[in-house]
Nucleic acid binder design. Structure first.
Length: 212
DNA sequence: CGTTCGATGCACT
DNA sequence: GTGCATCGAACGT
């Protein structure tokens, strides 16, 4: 359908890649079916000097993909239960990546619901891919997808020519260090964000509430 | 409305 | 043995 982003797209400064990934479409064509969503929230992690980047303590077995060629997926498990997916950026040797934090579901909604059903009741569309752990669950992304080529056939990001969203930047979420860097980039006001951006809240939860 | 807290596995020291 | 780039249920106000 769209144009799959080539490795050269990722071989650039991480903040620029992060900005341009918002509005692109992440697709997982799995044996169980295809699921896809527009990227609405990302975070940049760049270099050993970034204290929140997994490369902050130098090269290890886990963070090895960060040092590898751009355009591969870096998937890891955190808190024992959640898979988080990144796109590796910058030229090979420079450890950096963009974390995908939220999607607006576009295709494969029933499949997403099935995959997320294990963790709860029937979810509204807005909750399916809200948060980095939730979206990997909905798309069926696990450690099996670590190091896969994001320009490949099964897991890829494509440009469908969707209108570029208005962007809003804020500090990264959940990090204990490096919170001063405003490296979280969101589609402003999008209802699928993991958390609203400061000063840019989504529509009110009770639009026309009559106060009891 | 807000905050706390338990689940759970992998890689690291 | 420790520490997470989280999630959501269970509380308290």
């Amino acid at each position: 359908m769209g144009a799959v982003l080539p490795p050269a797209f990722y071989a650039r400064p991480t903040l620029q890649v992060a900005r341009e990934l918002v509005g692109k479409v992440l697709v997982h064509a799995a044996p169980a079916g295809t699921a896809a969503g527009m990227i609405v929230e990302v975070e940049a992690y760049s270099g050993e000097s970034d204290p929140a980047c997994h490369a902050a303590t130098g090269f290890t077995r886990r963070n090895a993909p960060l040092y590898g060629p751009p355009g591969l997926a870096y998937v890891y498990v955190n808190y024992g239960l959640h898979h988080l997916v990144n796109a590796v950026t910058e030229p090979e040797g420079a450890p950096a990546a963009v974390l995908i934090r939220a999607l607006e579901p576009l295709a494969g909604l029933p499949l997403m619901r099935n995959r997320r059903a294990a963790a709860g009741r029937a979810l509204p569309a807005a909750a399916l891919c809200r948060g980095p752990g939730n979206l990997t669950s909905a798309l069926g992304i696990t450690l099996e997808q670590n190091r896969v080529d994001l320009s490949g056939e099964r897991l890829f990001i494509e440009d469908r020519g969707l209108p570029p969203p208005r962007l809003a930047w804020s500090p990264r979420i959940g990090v204990s260090v490096g919170a001063d860097r405003p490296w979280r980039c969101c589609a402003a006001g999008n209802p699928h964000l993991s958390k609203p951006v400061w000063g840019c809240a989504p529509s009110p939860r009770r639009p026309l509430a009559g106060t009891p």
